[in-house]
Design a protein around this nucleic acid. Structure first.
Lengths: 140, 140
DNA sequence: TATTGTTATACTCTATAACTATA
DNA sequence: TATAGTTATAGAGTATAACAATA
């Protein structure tokens, strides 16, 4: 049936999108675990280019604030960030320590080195891909 | 720095691939949860077009056999599949019951209806996307 | 002895709800 | 009273290790 075929095909493409996302995530995990950092922790560190308050980090990570508290506890325990109250004393500002900044650079390097996306695709193709994916995400 | 720019760009594209995969996964979850089926269960049901042994399902799902045991327990409890020994008596063959087959059709329909991938992209663009993603996955 | 599946257990990621402190 | 963060707890998804049955 033509109907079934088109359904199967689009499902396969959706599955392919998912599998590729998971592959990229797995590459990221492998790269950062080699530095003894879990993927969520690595994501937080990489976002901490600038000092940020916890709620802001939560929205960048698309997660709950309570989870950021947990990540921050871990980062502080490891001496990678400091947690200090902001002007508004309800706020806590996270700032990378020198060790944290060093690690961030190492992670950024490690993550970029084994990027399947950039090694598989020419710059032009990367732009094509970016445009196609953006269109998918725009369908709200 | 040009180096930093290209690194940031490819990282962003990788992040975009991940985000799109997660978006497609979320759409899948929404579609199947409306039928009271968790995403892993739905994946198993959709793969059970043909009766399959558990190890085979494990490799199709890219998960451990012990997890398939768990999924199968759940499917059997709900009356959606039967578990019966094969010729080789070590093997268990999973087969959809009529209720399971009906649900499978409903899930396939629900999943295809709200596919952001197919509604955002023309058939030609879908082929482009498929080809780009395949190239990424081919990088071993 | 190698293979298929099961059981018990535990881990990672993440959210919800109730709470504290500050505004 | 509203907001930022914290604490305690729980749940989903999944793996590991030890095991049983069959080959």
């Amino acid at each position: 049936m033509a109907q079934d075929d088109s359904r199967a095909n689009s499902h396969n493409l959706a599955a392919l999108v998912v599998r590729t996302g998971e592959r990229v995530k797995a590459d990221f995990a492998q790269a950062v675990l080699a530095h003894d950092v879990s993927p969520p922790l690595a994501r937080a560190i990489l976002l901490l280019n600038e000092p940020a308050q916890m709620g802001c980090l939560a929205s960048q990570l698309s997660c709950d604030q309570s989870y950021v508290t947990r990540l921050a506890d871990d980062l502080v325990k490891r001496g990678l960030v400091t947690r200090a109250p902001g002007d508004d004393r309800r706020v806590q500002v996270l700032t990378l320590t020198p060790a944290g900044a060093l690690l961030k650079d190492q992670l950024a390097e490690a993550v970029s080195v084994e990027s399947a996306v950039s090694s598989a695709l020419s710059p032009h193709e990367q732009e094509q891909l970016r445009s196609l994916l953006t269109r998918i995400l725009e369908i709200s």
